[in-house]
Computed example of a mutant assay.
Amino acid sequence: ADWIRVSVEDSHPYRPKALERDYAQTGGRGLLLVREITLEAGGTCDVEHTASGGKIVWALLPLTPDAVVVSALTPVSQEERGPATSPRPAP
């Protein structure tokens, strides 16, 4: 009840990394922005591989200031995650 999990999934096998700030770069900042905004809000985020070879980029954000920060290394149960934010189409 105190957290919301937002995720985006695709079927591409490339696992992105948050790039360091490089003001000369014109792209590639998506994961950096997700990470920085999530950390500032007191949440956590990560990238996980899917069984089909793709990836899921997710962020876990507190809905209340009293929520406890969860480490990206701490597994989050399906009950804590709640229902998926967007249903995946059936294969």
Rank of each mutant, 00 (worst) to 15 (best):
P87E: 07
K55F: 00
A90E: 13
Q78T: 11
V47L: 06
G27M: 12
H12T: 07
W3V: 03
T26S: 10
L73N: 11
G53H: 13
R35P: 03
V8M: 03
W58M: 04
Y23K: 04
K55G: 01
S77R: 07
A24P: 00
P65G: 08
P91A: 14
T26K: 11
S77K: 08
P13E: 03
P16D: 05
A72H: 07
S86K: 15
T38Y: 13
D46L: 07
H49R: 14
V70I: 15
A72V: 14
Y14D: 07
T38K: 02
A24S: 12
V68A: 15
D66C: 07
R81H: 09
W3S: 04
E80M: 12
T64E: 02
D46G: 07
A41M: 08
K17I: 09
V47A: 07
S7G: 07
A18S: 12
W3N: 03
E36A: 14
G27K: 12
P87G: 08
L61D: 04
A90N: 05
W58R: 09
E48F: 05
Q25K: 15
S77N: 11
D10Q: 01
R15T: 04
Q25V: 09
T74N: 01
G27W: 12
R15S: 03
R21A: 02
G30D: 12
A67Q: 05
R88E: 14
G42M: 10
I56E: 03
A1K: 02
E79W: 05
V57K: 06
P91F: 14
R21Q: 08
I4C: 06
G54H: 02
R5S: 01
I56A: 02
T64F: 13
G42V: 10
V69L: 15
S71D: 15
V70H: 06
D10F: 01
T26D: 11
S52Q: 11
G82L: 04
G30V: 12
P89M: 10
A59P: 00
P62M: 04
P16E: 04
T74R: 04
G28C: 06
Q25G: 07
G53L: 10
K17F: 10
D10H: 12
H12G: 01
P16S: 11
